[in-house]
Amino acid sequence: MSYQRVKFYQTGTFTVGNRLLDESNRTVQAGMDRTNSLNSGHRACQGCGEALGARYALDAVMRATHQQMVAVNATGCLEVFSSPYPESAWQIPWMHSLFGNAPAVASGVAAALRAKGKTDIRVIAQGGDGATVDIGFGCLSGMFERNDDVLYVCYDNEAYMNTGVQRSGSTPPRAWTNTTQAVGKDPGNPMGIGKNLPRIAMAHGIPYVATASVADLHDLEAKVTKAMSIRGARYIHIHVPCPLGWKSDPAHTIKVARLAVESGLFPLFEAEGGEVTDRTPIRKKVLVEQYLELQGRFKHLLHPRDEGALEAIQAMADANIHRYQLLPLKA
């Protein structure tokens, strides 16, 4: 990896002050030259994980490309809160076409750049989980298999938040949404369905796939930076809590995201050419319950306790820990 991992930690937290780091190791956001690709004044909710993730991801792309980039956006919260006509929070060339076609539009931008010989300008496409794992999946798969020179960033808040919290193919098991209500037998989203898009992306054999989280923004920036050092189709899947849809405290966005990582439910890893090449180990493993209890969408699993569901979800986290070797092997 091209950057050095953060080693200094403030006592009792997992965050690190930029002041303690060498300037070259600080976040893009800490730099005086950050580009504010997604400017302040947009209309995202308090505690929006997607706005945070997008800001970090795009500024990192801007730095990596020396401001030579074009962004394509799928329909969704990010598009709506950033671009109510005639205002736009975007300080970059930015285009929105449809809900399900952002990867194809980005392929088109990349093709035009190839045709014009402007290969110094890079393309990113971005969308939420609905745009990515569901409605835009065909176009995304096409972009992957053609290995078009596009970085696709999925901001995964695990449901259709823009339309008012409906289930997507990325909604976790047993979560409440407005179309998987917490009523009846086995309330919430059914167990055992949904898709794991990072692994599907890996199956395309594309040069780079990574997961990231707003809980570790430095890692997120590093992965974006690395992605931009590679040509071809790349995919980064960023876990972004949504206080509205997850029924969590806006002040807990980072905390909730961190617990998803530390429980093993959202593993952070990188893959190249379809093989996992690196992962972020869990520093202090937590039980999934600690993650679930901060979110009203899982309330029905804890009040009263649904031991079966909790065990099943814990088993998912443990399977991730095993699959990605997220904990050091016990002696």
């Binding site: 194809a104 392929s107 931008v109 176009c139």
Partner: peptide
């Protein structure tokens, strides 16, 4: 060579907006 007609026109939307 794209994955659908929807993809085909979408690619052109991006390319046209890029000035092609």
């Amino acid at each position: 060579n794209v994955e659908s007609e929807f993809g085909a026109l979408s690619v052109l939307i991006g390319a046209s907006a890029m000035g092609a």
